[in-house]
């Protein structure tokens, strides 16, 4: 018998935590990532520099290091948050950098004439971005953002290292008792594959649905 099925309650609860982290951090990172992109293409130099620095920082620092920093250093600085919310916030700010890179590549696919036409109609730069440029940019990068979301879902496993009882932590705990590592970790792997597959399929559907006829 598979020990994961014997401990179904624990596994499901941990899977719930994994999915919660993936969904909340996914939505949060897309919102933050788009905002970072807006800053990155804004006419205000300070914003562009800040956004560039943001992206470079989070792309070049390991997620595990950020998690450890947030979990152990922030309480020292007087900021106490439960473990799971802390991990979610770290995932948001980390993955937002990758989302921002994807969206920026989408912005580059929007023809300059689209912006000129919207400016010529009297739309402000903010309106042009919101109504014309970003909707087209986001449509162009559904699949790349889907890939970031898959990476994010897989990265939730790192939260196990700082004490969040998500799927990886839970099956690790079960294995300490059952001692069937191949079966247990392969089963967990299959569950992660299922999550990745679901995100990939969803991204494909969304992409077809919002694709711009050209």
């Amino acid at each position: 018998m598979n020990p994961l099925i014997d401990n179904l309650g624990l596994v499901l609860e941990a899977l719930g935590t994994t999915l919660l982290m993936a969904v909340v951090a996914g939505v949060g990172s897309i919102v933050l990532g788009v905002l970072v992109t807006v800053a990155r293409v804004s006419p205000i130099r300070a914003l562009r520099v800040a956004a560039f620095g943001y992206v470079q920082f989070f792309i070049n620092v390991p997620l595990l290091a950020l998690l450890l920093l947030a979990v152990f250093a922030l309480p020292d600085a007087g900021l106490m948050l439960p473990l799971t919310p802390t991990a979610i916030i770290v995932l948001i700010v980390y993955e937002a950098a990758y989302v921002a890179e994807a969206v920026r590549s989408g912005v580059n696919t929007v023809a300059v004439g689209q912006l000129e036409a919207s400016r010529a109609l009297g739309l402000t730069l903010a309106q042009s971005l919101r109504l014309v440029v970003l909707p087209q940019a986001l449509r162009a990068v559904v699949q790349p953002i889907g890939n970031v979301m898959i990476a994010l879902a897989m990265n939730t496993a790192l939260a196990a290292a700082v004490g969040v009882v998500e799927l990886t932590a839970a099956v690790n705990k079960i294995n300490l008792v059952a001692a069937q590592p191949i079966l247990i970790f392969s089963s967990a792997g299959v569950i992660y594959m299922g999550i990745a597959l679901a995100i990939g399929l969803a991204a494909g559907r969304v992409e077809r649905k919002v694709a711009i006829v050209r």
Binding site: A111, G113, E116, A117, V132, Q136, I212
Partner: peptide, 8 residues
Amino acid sequence: FQSFNLFA
């Protein structure tokens, strides 16, 4: 514009 530039 020459290239129309309708919002795609």
